[in-house]
Design a protein around this nucleic acid. Structure first.
Length: 472
RNA sequence: GGCGGCAUAGCCAAGUGGUAAGGCAGAGGACUGCAAAUCCUUCAUCCCCGGUUCGAAUCCGGGUGCCGCCUCCA
């Protein structure tokens, strides 16, 4: 079975056939860097990062491009508000983007192009669109001429009239058609601007994405992703621009993730019902946040809630707990469980892949992971040990899962960092508790355990001694 | 008005024709000095009505409810 994706162009699940397999180009709309991003914004970043990881795991050579919009109205307004330049604002929030994204385990894109660094490509693209008769100049502005581009509306499956019927119409517009959108905006006093054949100005929002996507990934790119709110007008306009410029199909597969809701309403900056990732991160671990995002299908809306995040944290904890026992398990030969565990792991691996192949069904794939967890725990419970082979198979499985979903943080579980004074302090308390228990001072022993638990340190007594770990 | 999505146990959530994955929470039990972790047991007939079918959560028709896009927005 090949990998299949739901394509918003056809509104169907389609087998994934890259333009030039095994190479795959993915373009995802990145943030406008005028502020911290919120937890809703992080959904596509996580989803498409997982898509990229999975395609790599499947053997594709993925080139992943995610832009930064570093010039637009929001940027200009915010910079003015803060009394800094647009460039300074961009620099600052690109840094903050990476701080949050890195913390969430979102891999860096192969290219993170910025609009302001691609003015020549943008100008070239506009020139082609005008040359092909799909745009017109109006006093230093350049507008895309939607009437000239017959397929306009194909992503939305609506014609111009239908698109217009619910829209607010700008009565005073000089545009040929109300849906004509700006490719280039004439300079306004005090705003950043660049030279162009039509006078100084700056690019419209939509043009940067199509210009940069085609620059890095070719005229026809395999996958273009983003949040559903970009379907119209942003992605519709990108198609119009790119295809008007090149005459070739712009994107093979359009993928859009569902919204993150807050109290069952779309989380958005404009509604004001958002929580920055920076803020949420103080309360919940990155693993819990990733698990939460992956526990539902990417196209479904998910509702942000404390209960949801806590459930996710518990689930992730169970996974980690299993990995921990796996690594701590004694090794024995010729165990009864050997063959059945091997089989269970193999089954889980197959299901994991077939679910992921089915339009990135991460919720199903997580189910497969828990089936493996169950099998490992049961074997370990019954035998008190694992064979070396089983251990290795289980390890391989978990590493594959972590590589694709990034919800385990295996190095963190193994505590691979050098011992520090904090660890020493904890070990010392555990030693003290051991003494107390030896002297049957259970009250004293429990007090130490409770104190540590309050700090998020969990103790586990076993015949081999007391182990500890940090809760998520 | 046009277009699109969703409705599965207390909560989250897979499953698109063959008789309901998985997780969280809860209950009982095992293990433990007590816990934690783990294991065992337990916990749904899939919004409503009608239809197609030997058989439907899954297909069709009709309802009801919720959400989104058509305006900056991941």
């Amino acid at each position: 079975m090949p990998f299949a994706v739901y394509n918003d162009l056809s509104q169907k699940k389609e087998p994934f056939v890259p333009v030039d397999s095994p190479k795959v180009g993915i373009y995802v709309c990145g943030p406008t860097v005028y502020d911290f991003f919120h937890i809703g914004n992080s959904r596509p970043f996580i989803i498409f990062d997982v898509l990229r990881r999975y395609l790599r795991n499947r053997g594709y050579q993925v080139t992943y491009v995610q832009n930064f919009t570093d010039i637009d109205d929001k940027m200009i307004n915010r910079a003015a508000e803060m009394g800094i330049t647009v460039a300074e604002l961009a620099e600052r929030y690109i840094g903050e983007y990476f701080a949050d994204a890195d913390a969430l385990g979102i891999g860096r894109a192969d290219v993170h192009p910025r609009a302001t660094e691609h003015i020549p490509e943008i100008l070239e693209s506009i020139r082609k669109i005008i040359g092909n008769g799909h745009a017109y100049v109006l006093e230093g502005d350049v507008y895309f001429d939607v009437l000239s581009f017959a397929p306009y509306g194909k992503l939305m499956r609506q014609n111009l009239e239908e698109l217009l019927s619910g829209a607010r119409v700008d009565v005073n517009s000089r545009k040929k058609h109300p849906l004509d959108f700006a490719l280039w905006k004439a300079e306004k006093p005090g705003e950043p601007s660049w030279e162009s054949p039509w006078g100084r100005g700056r690019p419209g929002w939509h043009i940067e994405c199509s210009a940069m996507a085609t620059k890095y990934l070719g005229d026809t790119i395999d996958i273009h992703g983003g949040g559903s709110d970009l379907l119209f007008p942003h992605h519709e306009n990108e198609i119009a621009q790119a295809e008007a410029a090149t005459g070739k199909p712009f994107v093979k597969y359009w993928m859009h993730n569902g919204y993150l809701l807050m109290d069952h309403e779309k989380m958005s900056k404009s509604l004001g019902n958002f929580r920055t990732l920076r803020d949420v991160r103080k309360q919940y671990s990155p693993l819990a946040i990733r698990y939460f995002m992956l526990s539902a299908h990417y196209r479904s809306p998910i509702n942000f809630s404390a209960a949801g995040l806590e459930q996710a944290a518990s689930g992730a904890e169970r996974l980690r707990s299993c990995y921990r026992s796996l690594e701590e398990a004694p090794e024995k030969k010729n165990l009864q469980s050997e063959a059945s565990l091997k089989e269970a792991l193999e089954k889980a691996r197959e299901r994991f892949h077939s679910d992921m192949d089915d339009d990135l069904n991460t919720a199903g794939a997580l189910g497969a992971v828990f089936e493996a967890v169950k099998a490992i725990n049961t074997a370990l419970h019954e035998e008190g040990a694992l064979t070396m082979e089983n251990k290795e198979e289980a390890r391989t499985f978990f590493h594959m899962v972590d590589e694709v979903l990034g919800i385990l943080d295996i190095p963190g579980i193994l505590r691979e960092t050098a011992p520090n004074s904090e660890d020493a302090r904890i070990e010392k308390l555990i030693e003290k508790r051991k003494e107390a228990r030896k002297n049957k001072d259970f009250a004293g022993a429990d007090k130490i355990r409770d104190t540590l638990l309050e700090e998020g340190i969990v103790l586990k007594d076993s015949p081999e001694g007391t182990k500890w770990y940090r809760k998520l």
